[in-house]
Amino acid sequence: MRKILIVDDHYIVRQGLKQILVSTFQQVVVDEAVNGEDALRRILKSDYDIILLEIVLPDIDGFELLAQLMKLNPRLRILILSMHCEEKYVLQSIKAGASGYLTKNGSPWELVMAIRTVLSDKKYFGVNVVESLFFNHQKAVPEKTPQELLTPRELEVLRMLASGKRLKKIADDMALSLSTVSTYRLRILRKLNLKNNAEIIRYSINCGLAE
C-alpha cells in the first residue's frame, strides 16, 4: 500500500492531484496537508512513500519546511510541485534535498512518471524546469572576445580591415598572397557571424579594436 501526502494550500489543486493519483495507482492512500504545520504533524504520525510539496505556503517558507522534513528523515522522497520554475527555486530545492521538481502546468502523464521515478529512488526534473535552467544558463554564458575567437593572424587582418585597408594592401604589408588574406577574411566573417567589411568595422569599433 503506497502512502502519498499532498502539501498545498489550494483545495482545488489537492483534489485534482488526488483524483489523478487514485485513478493511476492501485492500493494508494492519499493524505492532504493545507500548510506546513499540518504537513509536519502528519509526517510525524505516518510514514509516507512520497510527498508532493508546494514551496509557497501560507504559514512557513517551503524551503524551510523541506529542510525540516529532511532533517527529520533524510530518506524522505519529496517531489516539489509548484508554479515557480525560476532557477533559484530549483537550485535551492535541490540543495535542501528534494528528489525532483515539477511545475503545475505540466501534464498528468508527467506527474505520474515523476512520482514513479522518485519512488524508484531516482531524481526527476520536469521538462519546463530543464528548459528554464538551460535557457538561463545560455544567457549567463559570457560572449567570447575576438582574442578568444580568432587566431593571432586573423586578429591582425581584422585590425587592418577595420582601419579601412584593402585586401591587396593587407597582403603586401603582411607579405602574404591575396588568396591567403581573402581566406583569413572569410574565416573572420564566419567566426564573428558578420556579413561584410562594414560590419567588421562596426564590430571592431564596439570591441575597441579599430585604430
Rank of each mutant, 00 (worst) to 15 (best):
residue 134 F to V: 15
residue 147 Q to Y: 12
residue 150 L to Q: 05
residue 109 W to V: 14
residue 101 Y to C: 14
residue 127 V to R: 05
residue 118 V to P: 06
residue 139 K to D: 14
residue 89 Y to M: 08
residue 142 P to D: 01
residue 121 D to Y: 04
residue 103 T to N: 10
residue 149 L to N: 00
residue 147 Q to W: 08
residue 95 K to Q: 06
residue 102 L to G: 08
residue 109 W to Q: 12
residue 150 L to V: 04
residue 118 V to M: 06
residue 133 L to K: 08
residue 99 S to E: 09
residue 147 Q to E: 15
residue 127 V to C: 02
residue 125 F to N: 07
residue 139 K to P: 07
residue 129 V to T: 10
residue 91 L to K: 06
residue 116 R to T: 10
residue 137 H to V: 14
residue 140 A to E: 05
residue 146 P to M: 01
residue 92 Q to M: 04
residue 113 M to Q: 10
residue 101 Y to L: 14
residue 77 R to A: 13
residue 141 V to R: 15
residue 134 F to H: 11
residue 85 C to P: 01
residue 110 E to Y: 09
residue 131 E to M: 11
residue 115 I to S: 04
residue 136 N to Q: 11
residue 97 G to K: 04
residue 100 G to Q: 12
residue 112 V to H: 09
residue 137 H to D: 11
residue 128 N to Y: 13
residue 147 Q to R: 14
residue 120 S to C: 05
residue 132 S to E: 15
residue 135 F to W: 03
residue 120 S to H: 13
residue 146 P to I: 01
residue 143 E to A: 01
residue 108 P to K: 11
residue 104 K to M: 08
residue 139 K to T: 11
residue 96 A to S: 13
residue 105 N to T: 15
residue 123 K to N: 11
residue 150 L to F: 04
residue 132 S to P: 01
residue 93 S to F: 02
residue 96 A to K: 13
residue 107 S to R: 11
residue 119 L to E: 09
residue 85 C to Y: 12
residue 148 E to C: 00
residue 141 V to H: 04
residue 122 K to W: 01
residue 102 L to C: 09
residue 103 T to D: 12
residue 121 D to M: 02
residue 85 C to M: 07
residue 81 L to E: 12
residue 145 T to V: 01
residue 124 Y to Q: 08
residue 123 K to V: 03
residue 83 M to F: 13
residue 97 G to Q: 03
residue 104 K to L: 07
residue 88 K to T: 12
residue 110 E to G: 08
residue 149 L to P: 01
residue 129 V to A: 08
residue 107 S to K: 12
residue 144 K to A: 00
residue 133 L to G: 08
residue 83 M to T: 15
residue 112 V to C: 08
residue 81 L to P: 13
residue 91 L to P: 01
residue 131 E to P: 02
residue 104 K to Y: 05
residue 141 V to A: 09
residue 118 V to E: 02
residue 145 T to L: 00
residue 87 E to I: 09
residue 133 L to S: 09
residue 148 E to Y: 00
residue 129 V to E: 11
residue 111 L to Q: 10
residue 126 G to R: 09
residue 97 G to E: 03
residue 88 K to L: 05
residue 94 I to H: 06
residue 123 K to T: 07
residue 139 K to H: 13
residue 138 Q to T: 14
residue 132 S to V: 07
residue 93 S to Q: 03
residue 77 R to M: 07
residue 91 L to F: 05
residue 91 L to A: 02
residue 114 A to K: 04
residue 129 V to L: 05
residue 143 E to G: 00
residue 139 K to F: 12
residue 140 A to H: 03
